[in-house]
């Protein structure tokens, strides 16, 4: 089974960032505070389900689904 990514989250679901699968995109995401180990929560989706809104370290980040798919996650216990 392939790893879950932020793109697979449901609205309101929480997860912890584990790693990235695209280095160029990870540089941008890291700087915006998406760090491995950080807890994220999918706070909402734009109409048509894309882009998505992600709560990370206290603020809201909008990104496309294709970008969200580069953030691999593990579930929060």
């Amino acid at each position: 089974m392939s790893k879950r990514s932020v793109a697979d989250l449901k609205v309101g679901e929480r997860a912890t960032i584990q790693s990235f699968n695209n280095q160029l995109m990870s540089l941008k995401l890291l700087e915006m505070g998406c760090l491995p180990g950080a807890e994220v929560c999918l706070s909402g989706k734009a109409p048509l389900g894309d882009p998505i809104c992600l709560n990370v370290s206290g603020y809201c980040l909008a990104m496309r689904k294709s970008e969200a798919a580069t953030i691999l996650i593990e579930n929060v216990e």
Binding site: K28, M32, Y59, L61, A62, M63, S66, E67
Partner: peptide, 11 residues
């Protein structure tokens, strides 16, 4: 080139 859209939503 891969297009992207990552943006902070200000309060």
């Amino acid at each position: 080139e891969r297009g992207y859209f990552i943006m902070e939503l200000p309060t």
